[in-house]
Amino acid sequence: MNPRLLPYFLIFPVTLFLCLFFLYPFVLVSQEAFSNENGYNLDNFREVTSYWKFPISLKNTFLLAAAVVPVQLALSLLMATMVNRMKRGRDLILYIWTIPLGISDLAAGIIWLAIFEQSGFLNSMLGGLGLIDSPTNFLSYQTPVMVFVAIMLAEIWRATAIMLVILVAGIGLIPKEYYEAGEVFGASPWQRFLKITLPLLRPSLQTALVLRVILAFEVFAVVQALGGTLFPVLMGETYAYQFDLLDGGAAAAIALIILAISITFTLIIMRALRVPKGATI
């Protein structure tokens, strides 16, 4: 077989699979979003964006992403740097730190609900310590900040590991000689992190951030478990349109809006962290 055609031949099955199960449904969803009984139009988009909950869910989704992703980025960088310096027990720590990855987002939400709810761990602990007289409801409409913090904590706990594993792999690829050169030429540990680790980690940071940001805009089950209707987000609205209001067109329209946001941020991240030609390891 012609060796130039071989790669295309080999990726054909995967491509076919993707077309069948991703592209085709995508076309269907788009069709549904851009049409109603009157034919092709933007009515669905008009409907969902003019609904009073839309600006709130949009704002909440962005707020949550803006609060969670930077914290996760900093945390995962710190954790990856620490893991990378460990000689013994490195794998064990990595396994422990990545346990939340194995738990579904709904289960994660329920775990944190068990902590924060009126009869939860936090209340019994505070009560046991004598800090409060009777259990309080942390997750009520009267404590929106607390609801937000609980969701933030759950999200950070659940999804930092995905960034961590990507960054650990990326840091492992940076040759030790660069750090030694940095040290010899007078860079402090912090400067070595800023001037060597971060720039050389750009490809991994790109991947980790893109993945994480896309997941942040799709946040759903954790919010549902902890905030319910107190903290509407875009994905929750999609669900509500599809299954509560049985309005497939509107659900499809919101899904496409989420997709557009994700693509925009992906492009921004790729652009911001791009590596000039010839400047790779």
């Binding site: 040759p175 000689e177 660069y178 030694e180 050169a181 060597i196 720039p199 050389l200 750009r202 590596v275 400047a279 790779t280 390891i281």
Partner: peptide
């Protein structure tokens, strides 16, 4: 030995 010229 391997130069350690910073690629970035």
């Amino acid at each position: 030995q391997n130069y350690a010229v910073f690629p970035h």
